[in-house]
Computed example of a mutant assay.
Amino acid sequence: MLGQAVARTASRAGRDGRLRAPCRRAAGRARRQALRAPKVELSGSEKAAILVLSLPDAEARALLERMDADEIESVLGAIPRVEAIGAETQARVLDELRERVEGSAAAAMASPERALDWIDELLPAERAERLRLAAQRDAAPIAWALHPHAPGFVASTIEAEDAQTIALIVSQLPAKRGAAVLGALPAAVRPDVVRRLASLEAVSADVLADVAAGLDELFAERLRAAAPARGVAAAAEVMAALPKPDGDALLDALQQRDEAIAEEIRRSMFTFDHLANVDDRGFKKLLQNVPVEDLVLALKTASPAVRDKVLGNLSNRARQSLLEEEEMMGPKRVSEIEAKQREIVDTARRLAEQGELSLGDDGGEAFA
């Protein structure tokens, strides 16, 4: 498609009288350099981008307006890759597009900033934004690789690198962000980084791209290490978000393969703290099936919401009895308390299966 786009670009330039002369003039400014230049392999979209950037603004716009949206996106998306193209390559491309080229060392290439102005004018908003982001990534790969991360996180991740590498990274960031990263580095590291920063020389685009790729891998590893797997808890959250029939069917199928895991997920989908969401009528039914001494033990580590739910659904006499039992009960092992809470949850699940209560989520939708 890109090769066809280049051919159509050349054809349109030749047919349009306004474009023929400017294109010939642009070609004329670069031809002699092409005769002694090493050949650079370019894609079709890159060749078309060189042609567009070689034209005066009005003629370039006119040429782009004759392309469809896919062609415009391909051509403008290639501009960050060809902005450093020399006059010799420009001349060869224009020769290839059937224009007579004759030249000087200074190619008449427009700036990438001019291309950004065209993006919003010639493409739909969504595609324009995607292309603009791609241009920003290509123009500043290191800043782009680090932009999702806070300066402190950047500093702690790169502080083990050598001072020269850190200086290069800081040099590629906007001044305020670079200062924030530098300030977050260990005090012992900062002077050497600043010294290397002051003596940095020009760095090729290939080196910057390699460093950016390395940063992507480094930060991906750091984020993976900082995000431990949540196992059963994560599975329970996903299952609870499914419609109840789908969740029940999936758990039944899982139980056929691994009964222990299925039961763990079921327990995690509805915990003791979730009892606060049970409707009052059903909760009173639950309290009738739980001995007061079990309830007192389970409430030792209960959330305020569950405690309020229990006290609010007891009669005055039962509430007073529970409070007295609490005062008399001494310290208990956490494992003992959690075991009693699981027993009460199992009772609630059994009553739900019998239709005696509804185990509601935050939205009031039943699940078991």
Rank of each mutant, 00 (worst) to 15 (best):
L123D: 03
A205S: 03
L51P: 12
M269P: 00
M269F: 04
W144L: 00
L251W: 09
R127C: 05
R349N: 01
D252G: 11
L218C: 05
G330I: 03
A225V: 10
A180S: 10
F272D: 08
G77V: 01
R29H: 10
A105I: 02
A7V: 06
F367P: 00
Q136V: 13
Q90G: 12
P148F: 03
A276N: 12
Q320Y: 05
S54R: 05
L64E: 02
A27I: 07
L2G: 00
R350Y: 02
D246N: 08
P174E: 09
E113W: 02
Q4H: 11
A225M: 10
P151D: 06
S156C: 00
A260I: 12
L275M: 01
A262R: 08
A115W: 04
L359S: 06
G103W: 04
V207F: 05
V75H: 10
L311G: 07
A227L: 14
G77W: 12
V290C: 12
V101F: 07
L351S: 08
E59C: 02
L351Q: 12
A366G: 15
A318M: 14
E326D: 04
R15T: 07
R190W: 01
P112R: 03
E73T: 06
R333A: 08
D252I: 03
F153L: 01
K309G: 08
A26D: 05
L208F: 03
W118I: 01
E102Y: 07
L19G: 13
E126Q: 11
K332G: 01
T165Q: 09
L51G: 05
R177W: 02
L250G: 12
T165W: 10
G3H: 04
A302Q: 14
S11I: 07
L359C: 04
S199V: 15
A212Q: 13
E343F: 03
H147K: 02
R127Y: 10
A37R: 03
L97K: 06
V238R: 03
P191Q: 15
L131N: 12
A229V: 05
A167M: 10
Q288I: 05
G231S: 14
K47P: 09
L286N: 15
S11E: 14
V238H: 03
A253M: 01
D117N: 02
I166L: 08
I166P: 11
